[in-house]
Write a protein that binds this DNA or RNA. Structure first.
Lengths: 340, 340
DNA sequence: GTTTAGCACTCAAAACAAAAGAGTGCTAAC
DNA sequence: GTTAGCACTCTTTTGTTTTGAGTGCTAAAC
């Protein structure tokens, strides 16, 4: 079921309006500012229809309407990257004047700019495992049924993961398995290992051990996950939004922001997407109530260096956010290229 | 001018009360809860006297009194470390169950516990330069009057600092100076260098260059300063205090918390003190409005590993905070000792 | 069939008024 | 030096009224 053009226009206008005012939007306002050729009564009829279709919500009978999550989803799906104004561009670029010495430096600068320009809380996930090469994997038996997974890369040694192994596994078997593990998984970049699908690479004879290999792979993924550095900036921005004048909401928000691991997980899921918009809890369990998360990937030539993004109220200024993220993303890639 | 015993008792009771309620305290309340042997009228007279001495403030004529910063200073100066209850101790120690793998790990755990137990925002400064040994110092002439200070330690190379040198310095002179620098300052631990006093070690013949040496030393101190890792935890706690229900206050607080460098500076000043309490802006320019900072030093055998502390409203529960910091400080030292 | 003017109705928010009550300062007596 | 007593002050609470924005519906116009 598709919306009529007029309904689309009304809905879009209403969301546009709500994003700036955070107040219920009335039929009269839509008429005056967006659709002067129709009377407010007509628009009221349309609004009523949109409401029963689930796009709008009325806080109480004598109030205007506010967009539902469905409406926001409609809104962002229409969205394209619009070019920034010259002012906005210079506002961003004047922050990058000084020399940049490391990726970490870049990330910390970026979060500052991002938060300042969008008036939202910004998050950067730096993928420290990028380029790290796994050189050796070894299962070391601890007890009859348990083994330590020892992972040696060119930069680190990981020895914090224990998995279960079949009870009847002999030392010779274990040796063999270690051979296969190294054959299959080394030397390989950690980022590559993350994407490996065992079904594709396991020989028939190794199928019986698939669950064991699966476990090892899980450890490898775990390892690559841990090697992330998360920084946030501008948490205080949230207090400027009326929807967070409620203390409990604000508190919940801040608490989520502090749980870096959860933040990283939220970013992790949308691997592959250049730009990702998650609206409200329904789309991402871990988001604070009433929040959206817009993320972008930072990478050159298939190497992912991390992600950047902003988190804020569902009615954030997606247009601006998307454009700014796009611009900064390109900027970073340029900086990283110069580096090399 | 010293306070009479009764005044002391009244003042102490009032602060004690205010710390829990955050409300102006009335003469009647003090009488009922702390001084049943005097009438409220008598206490009123005393309160009036304490007010004119600057210990108390009255929000308006028909309200009780609230303690001034001076009163809090009086209060904490009386404070001693009181033993924790068994409940509090177990609340702390149950968090340290898992194995601890690194100092960083310790710090991150400690901030969590600290914030949870005190209901305040906790801060940890990890002194990464601890144990780092400066191996070589070299001045490299850039222009006639400028030189780069190159510092090589066992872990890092620092080359971001430029100082002025006398215009008439020949290359031979510079070589000599480099020799002296290395003679005086290497090989030494960075933490040692921080405390060096040039007056004590400079020979007569080097006096003329004292200011130059002073500059190099400043760079070394700068270097050791940079090598700090600051983590905070529980920023959201602040929202539970009525004094931060005002949005602007809360915002300001959060913004300060995000400026890690400033936080580090606040800790830096009280080198040498085991425990330090700073009450309000008057004592520490960089504190958020209406905040106090209680810090403790973490170290074994004169080696400073960093600091931990909490930041929160001036009327925080100093008794508890001080005891908890004391307890956790000792706990960390034990953990660090086991490590070695 | 679609649009719209008109009007009754709803409900939150603002404005106002009154009452309650907590606390003080002062005076006069103990 | 201490305290009972009381007038006075000022905030807080509570209730009431008013206002006005906005809707839904109906009936007429297009």
């Amino acid at each position: 079921m598709t919306l009529s053009d007029r309904k689309k226009k009304i809905l879009y206008s209403l969301v546009d309006d709500y994003i700036v005012t955070a107040e219920p939007v009335s039929s009269k306002k839509i008429q005056e500012e967006h659709l002067p050729d129709y009377s407010s009564a007509t628009i009221r009829n349309e609004l009523s229809a949109l409401e029963s279709m689930g796009y709008l919500v009325q806080p109480h009978t004598s109030a205007g309407r506010i967009p539902s999550q469905k409406a926001f989803r409609f809104y962002v799906d229409q969205l394209m990257v619009t070019p920034l104004t010259q002012d906005e561009i210079s506002a961003i670029e004047c922050h990058f004047g000084d020399k940049i010495s490391s990726l970490q430096d870049v990330m910390s600068k970026v979060t500052k700019v991002l938060s300042e320009v969008t008036h939202l809380t910004s998050i950067a996930v730096e993928d420290k495992a990028t380029g790290e090469v796994v050189q050796n994997i070894k299962l070391v038996r601890l007890t009859q049924g348990n083994a330590l997974v020892l992972v040696v890369s060119d930069k680190n040694v990981f020895k914090d993961h224990i998995i279960e192994i079949p009870d009847n596994l002999s030392d010779v078997d274990l040796e063999k398995i270690n051979g296969w593990l190294n054959h299959l998984f080394t030397p390989k970049k950690i980022d590559e290992l993350r994407g490996i699908n065992l079904d594709d690479i396991l020989d028939e004879e190794l199928r019986v051990l698939q669950s064991l290999f699966e476990d090892v792979l899980k450890v490898l993924r775990e390892v690559s996950k841990k090697k992330k550095e998360i920084i946030t900036q501008g948490a205080a921005q949230i207090l400027d939004y009326p929807e967070y004048s409620d203390k409990d909401n604000a508190k919940q928000f801040l608490q989520v922001i502090e749980q870096k691991q959860k933040l990283a997980d939220m970013f992790a899921e949308d691997n592959g997407m250049e730009l990702n918009i998650k609206i409200g809890r329904e789309e991402e369990q871990n988001l604070p109530d009433g929040c959206s998360l817009v993320t972008a990937k930072i990478g050159i030539n298939k190497n992912s260096y991390g992600n950047i993004g902003v988190i804020g109220p569902v009615r954030m200024d997606y247009k601006k956010v998307v454009s700014v993220l796009d611009h900064i993303g390109k900027l970073i890639e340029k900086l990283l290229n110069e580096e090399e």
